[in-house]
Each structure stands twice: as C-alpha cells, then as structure tokens.
C-alpha cells in the first residue's frame, strides 16, 4: 500500500461520519490501542505539546522505516496512530516527499485546537526528521 492509499483508507473511515463526536470516537479508539515499546518512553523520544505528551520512535530495516508512538492523551495518541499507520513501511525518501493531505480531508485541522494542531505538526515534523536521518545514512 502506498502512503496515499493508506491516507485514502483513513479518509474513507471518517467519510461516513457526520457527527464530530463519532469522528472523535474513531480517533480515541485508535489512541487507546496505540502503544510504544516502554523502553522508548524516555525524554529523548518525547515531543512536548502544550498539554499532551507524545513519544515517537522509528526503526530502519531493509530500506523501510517503522514508527512507534504513544501519548498520554487518547486524542493525540489517535492522531499519532494514524501517522504511524500511514508512514510505516515506506522508504525514507517516500516519507520525506509525502504530502499528508488526510488531515485536511478528514477536517482534523479546523477542529483541533491550535495547541493540538501545533502538537500534530510537531509529530509530523519529528517523523520526517527520522526519515531524513535514515536517508542520509544510506
């Protein structure tokens, strides 16, 4: 599956939902299921948002990046989970070039508070930074 196919799958999940609470339910469910290997729940892996904490780690093997993430809040965790799902299993170059349009298409951007969308941007940035680092190792 390409990055865009993964994004389209997520968009499709949200498309049938009219009520924002149902959309949040989907995010929360993903957040509750999203875990990181406890050894990576360290300050080095922490992205500090305003009110939520998110830990991100990435591994690189066979030319592909695999992400893990977790948050102390379920909503940030759900967003991290979607990013993990979309970006894992791709090459650093694909990740660096990815246009993450799903955020606009599921309407996340308008509905998340500014502090939360800053946190989301920080997560995306951190994931791309991993890809850049792995790419330069190549």
């Amino acid at each position: 599956m390409t990055i865009n196919e993964a994004q389209d799958n997520i968009i499709a999940d949200f498309e049938g939902l009219d009520d924002w609470l149902d959309k949040y339910q989907l995010i929360i469910d993903r957040g509750m299921a999203q875990k990181i290997d406890p050894q990576y729940k360290t300050p080095q892996h922490l992205i500090e948002g305003c009110q939520s904490k998110v830990w991100i780690h990435a591994d690189y093997a066979d030319g592909k990046v695999t992400y893990q993430a977790e948050s102390n809040t379920e909503i940030a965790g759900g967003i991290a989970a979607m990013l993990v799902e979309i970006l894992s299993g791709h090459t650093p170059r694909e990740i660096m070039d990815a246009d993450l349009y799903f955020i606009d298409r599921i309407g996340l951007k308008e509905h998340l508070s500014p502090t939360r969308s800053n946190g989301m941007l920080a997560m995306m940035k951190q994931m791309k930074l991993y890809a850049i680092a792995f790419n330069s190792v190549n």
């Binding site: 924002w20 609470l21 949040y24 929360i28 305003c50 009110q51 939520s52 102390n72 809040t73 379920e74 909503i75 940030a76 509905h111 508070s113 939360r116």
Partner: peptide
C-alpha cells in the same frame, strides 16, 4: 484515567467551555 485535555476537548465539542491543565 481520562486525561483532562481529552475530557475538555470532548466537552468543548458538546458546547461546554471548561478549562483544562
């Protein structure tokens, strides 16, 4: 175990302004 930020976000979408943090 609900994080105050999560609870505040849902309450917000239900029209309720509370403070969290």
């Amino acid at each position: 175990e609900i994080h105050p930020y999560d609870l505040g976000t849902i309450l917000d979408h239900l029209g309720i302004a509370v403070r969290t943090g």
